[in-house]
Simulated scan of single mutants.
Amino acid sequence: MKTNTQSFTLVNLQTVTMQIFAALVLLGTALHGAAPMTHSMMNFFTASSQVPNFPEFVFVGLVNEIEVVHYDSNSRKSETKQEWMIRATEDDPQYWQRETEILFGHQQRFKNNIEVAKQRFNQTGGVHIVQWMIGCEWDDETDEVKGYEQHAYDGEDFLSLDLETETWVAPKQQAVITKHKLDNNKALMDEYKHYFTQSCPEELKKFVKFGRSSLLRKDLPSVSLLQKTPSSPVSCHATGFYPDGAMMFWRKDGEELHEDVDLGEILPNHDGSFQMSVDLDLSSVKPEDWTRYDCVFQLVGVKEHIFTRLEEEKIRTNREKPTDKNGINIPAVVVPLVLLLLLAVIGFLVYRRRIRGRWC
């Protein structure tokens, strides 16, 4: 399933929601690039069956790779993730109620779509995933607009819309039935063309107007190297970046590492910015080879990278200083004793000098 040369790739939906959302952010970026004057609105629908600890239906709406709307089958409520979206929809009091009703309808249809797909692929039970992405991008310099619609099933391309030829592309034999049905529905194609050329760009422009200060915000983080104990992995920790579309990884001799590396989730800070960490296991690395490693942070849409070389003196640790068997901090005791001893020696020398002065 392709739009021009791009492909829609399924994320691992057995991870937590934040990991899924992060992957979708990067996916949306890959689809339309990171041109400074290009804005995007992408809507991601995900339906699943028998996925543990995950809603059967999830909707995520993104503007410029930032989550602005969320709905899932557990809450059954469409709600904003950005304060400026409240202002953007004030002129339409029924907006959120209407969105909730629309998404509940999609929830019911997607549940049926999974059953249809299982029949076509001659499947019964087990874990299955259906995904749909639809959206548009707008270049505020040239005023050019583009639209995308793609579908995936169980991690593989299933169906996509080619707006140039006004036809559907079916890379799977099981999707050909749907392709022919949609190709013959000219009224539906006219609706799609209106959505991609009018409705979607107009709504996107409105959201960019209200959310400009947040949507165009790009904050680079501070990066630190942390280690709990000498045998613990070294954690490269970035905090204070915005938005949450970011990549972080370890390199050796300039090549990205995939082994002995543990990438953490992107987590929110209290001030609205984000943080993330990536750990490196150094148990099999000689100390003299540490400088061959560095940590790389990249914020989506920003060309600048942050490189942090692995050097022992840069590592911050919360390791406690050695204590004696009674739990007393040894340096805390030794230092005063040394000072007292030094003062005693000085006092003794002064005393001797005074005595010698009397007898000479």
Rank of each mutant, 00 (worst) to 15 (best):
T3D: 07
G327Y: 07
L263P: 00
H39T: 07
V11K: 03
G61Y: 12
R353P: 01
A152P: 15
F44L: 07
L342S: 08
L103K: 01
E83Y: 14
F104W: 01
L24W: 08
K209A: 10
A175I: 10
V338Q: 06
A246W: 05
R356D: 15
F158C: 01
D271P: 12
A332P: 14
G211Y: 07
R109T: 01
V345Y: 12
I328F: 13
A88S: 04
T3M: 10
F44K: 01
G272D: 04
I86E: 02
R217I: 00
H270C: 03
A34P: 05
S199L: 13
C295M: 06
T165S: 15
E166L: 11
Y192P: 07
I114M: 01
Q173P: 14
E166I: 00
P93H: 08
E101F: 08
Q19Y: 12
E255W: 09
A246S: 02
R353D: 06
E166D: 15
T3W: 12
Q131S: 10
D162G: 13
K181C: 08
L159E: 06
A34E: 13
A238V: 00
D253R: 10
Y148H: 15
P336L: 01
D253N: 12
A175K: 08
A170H: 05
I134H: 12
G126R: 00
N184H: 13
V116F: 09
T89W: 12
R212D: 02
E101H: 00
V261Q: 01
P55H: 11
R352P: 05
M247F: 04
H305V: 08
E164T: 12
K146G: 05
A344V: 10
T100N: 02
N326Q: 11
D271Q: 02
L163Y: 09
C295S: 07
D92H: 06
F59S: 00
H151M: 12
M133D: 11
M189V: 13
I266M: 13
G245V: 07
I66M: 08
E320C: 06
F297L: 04
